[in-house]
Design a protein around this nucleic acid. Structure first.
Length: 334
DNA sequence: GAGCCGTGGAT
DNA sequence: TATCCAAGGCT
């Protein structure tokens, strides 16, 4: 069965910057690792530019390990899930300090590194090191649920789906097979309107036979996102610098810069300094688990301004996470 | 196991 | 406008 999928992949593999062609030569574990971390819960289109900028600025794992934290966080800004960037640095430094500058060549060895979980470890082991490790991402969950007619809802069905995926993972061409089954999910076996008519696995697919392919996999119902509200204060000094503060190292937007603000509980708060604050309106943003509405207050402040919190920094806006960029855009465009 | 953790594009 | 969801990991 895998032969059929690989034949399809040989003809339809997408060309991506971090990918080697089907049957191609040795992959660079650093580039595979970097791309896989960036691609966690993130689309190919969103990753492309970031991957180019990171590899141009830090061509090797040694370069990245030696980088300043703030530079890496600023380069990651806008891509989301910022714990990935913190773990990226921790992982690069662990590779240098504990592994002689080379990534572990096995799934189990990779799994011990920060930011590398079951999926990413299997992907690197298969693609960069030729280990017949089984990748189970969202694509594979969907493909296997349909192929093997798994009606139990996710995430409870994940262990069973993993076992079913392992049972059909071939020993031949592990890296190509891993990318092939994910490509199948991304381009043919899609969530809404799967193109079963041109699928290389149409014949063995049990959900297709039952006529319920598009309804699988089933998923547990999600809870509604609550609305949180707060205020942010954007102060621009006479020299053009902006008042920003370092957010706590962990948690939401951890390690990133942000505007001084109230707690996001609707209760208001105190401005970071006394000034003639002007109401610019509001910005809205949706995070993974809540909606946010922020009132934006803006003030021009003198060069000698002495705020109670934060530091004045020269900004382009691109160093900021997206929700903070929205405030910056409101202030600079008005 | 379940909640936390971003963002932008598609529908 | 609301929802889904994309090469998940950590606690």
């Amino acid at each position: 069965m895998s032969e059929h999928l690989l034949t399809w992949y040989d003809a339809h593999a997408r060309v991506l910057p971090w990918r080697i062609p089907p049957g191609g030569g040795a992959a660079d574990p650093y580039r595979i690792w970097l791309s896989e971390v960036m691609l966690q819960q993130t689309t190919v289109a969103a990753v492309q530019g970031y991957f180019h900028r990171f590899t141009a600025r830090w061509p090797t794992v040694a370069d990245l390990a030696a980088a300043e934290d703030a530079d890496v966080m600023a380069e990651w800004a806008g891509l989301g899930y910022y714990a990935r960037a913190r773990n990226l640095l921790a992982c690069a430094r662990a590779v240098m300090a504990d592994h002689g500058g080379r990534f572990p060549a096995t799934r189990d060895g990779l799994l011990a590194l920060p930011g590398i979980g079951p999926y990413t470890a299997a992907a690197i082991a298969a693609i960069a090191f030729g280990e017949a490790a089984t990748v189970v991402d969202g694509n594979v969950e969907r493909v296997i649920a349909r192929l093997r007619h798994v009606e139990d809802p996710l995430p409870a069905a994940k262990p069973r789906i993993t076992r079913l995926a392992e049972a059909i993972t071939p020993a031949d061409r592990p890296g190509d097979y891993a990318q092939a089954i994910m490509d199948l999910g991304a381009t043919i076996c899609t969530p809404r309107n799967p193109a079963c008519g041109i699928c290389p696995w149409m014949a063995p697919c049990r959900a297709r036979a039952e006529g319920i392919a598009a309804t699988l996999p089933r998923k547990a119902a999600k809870t509604a996102k609550p609305l949180r509200e707060g205020v942010i204060w954007l102060a621009r000094r006479a020299d053009g610098a902006w008042l920003v503060e370092d957010r706590p190292a962990r948690g939401l937007l951890g390690g990133m810069w942000g505007w001084p603000g109230s707690p996001w509980d609707g209760g208001g708060g105190a401005a970071p300094l006394t000034a003639d604050w002007r109401d610019l309106g509001e910005v809205r943003h949706t995070f993974s688990h809540f909606h946010l509405r922020l009132q934006v207050l803006f003030a021009e402040v003198p060069q000698g301004a002495n705020p109670e919190r934060g530091q004045f920094r020269t900004l382009t806006g691109r160093e900021l996470p997206t929700v903070m960029r929205k405030g910056y855009a409101l202030a600079t465009l008005s």
